[in-house]
């Protein structure tokens, strides 16, 4: 099976093509701007290197974040356009899942996995997984100072996993270092979401898959005019 995967949610964008589970070609782009210009040329380069025509792709896959809204929309609009134009299935994979599954199994063995993604705000997003990478709950927003308690509650939920000896992975770890100081035997793996992992996850998804939408995890920043309910958010309105 040929899978073309793309991700532009984080500071590093990537495009990867796998053939029967083996990485055939990949390209990375490590700037937070310019994805709209570079993404299609990167896809063309990956296809060319793999010697694969776009019509030969069996499935498309895309990272649905969370992450930068602009990058997310660039990748997902592109992926949805590719799926529409080729009639091939498209599968969305969350950044948490991609980070957790991107870890070397030998390093994460018997450990709870917590994927941590920079929200570009003070508080990162995270999701816990047990040692078999089954999610421990829905993604949440970490709040400064509350992290150890939050992590323990989150990670010791229904599966009874233990944060002690957990492994944290993702680009949001730096923001948490102070909160993590007292937790013993913690493994930290700063890492970016990798399109090759997204392709691997998409290969085992059943079809039909739901149409991917961004995992925004944050409502739009906007203020309702005075006199309207829910006027506690800040933002700008153009008329």
């Amino acid at each position: 099976m040929k899978i073309l995967a793309l991700d532009a949610a984080g500071a590093v964008s990537s495009v990867a093509l796998t053939i029967d589970g083996r990485l055939a070609a990949r390209r990375d782009y490590d700037r937070a701007r310019g994805q709209a210009e570079i993404l299609i040329p990167l896809i063309e380069a990956v296809l060319a290197e793999a010697g694969c025509a776009i019509d030969a792709i069996d499935r498309f896959a895309v990272g649905i974040g969370p992450g930068g809204f602009t990058g997310l929309r660039i990748a997902i609009a592109t992926a949805r356009g590719l799926a529409l134009a080729t009639g091939r299935p498209l599968i969305g994979i969350s950044g948490f899942e991609a980070l957790a599954h991107g870890l070397d199994p030998a390093i994460r063995r018997n450990r709870t996995v917590v994927a941590v993604i920079d929200s570009q705000r003070a508080d990162p997003y995270l999701q816990g997984f047990d040692a078999d990478l089954v999610p421990l709950g829905a993604p949440i927003t970490a709040t400064a100072g509350s992290l150890p308690a939050l992590l323990i509650r989150h990670a010791t939920g229904p599966a009874g996993a233990d944060l002690v000896g957990a492994i944290l992975v993702g680009d949001g770890i730096d923001r948490l270092r102070a909160d993590l100081a007292g937790i013993p035997d913690l493994v930290l793996r700063p890492a970016a979401v990798d399109a090759a992992v997204i392709a691997g996850r998409a290969e085992c998804r059943p079809l039909p898959a739901p149409l991917p939408s961004p995992l925004y995890l944050r409502p739009p920043d906007v203020t309702l005019p005075a006199g309207q309910p829910d006027a506690d958010r800040s933002g700008q309105v153009v008329s």
Partner: peptide, 20 residues
């Protein structure tokens, strides 16, 4: 126009054009 929306239309169009 509003860049967030323009990006969606441009990327969708590029993807269709590239694929076809």
């Amino acid at each position: 126009g509003l860049i967030g929306g323009v990006i969606v239309g441009v990327m969708t169009a590029k993807a269709i054009a590239m694929a076809r």
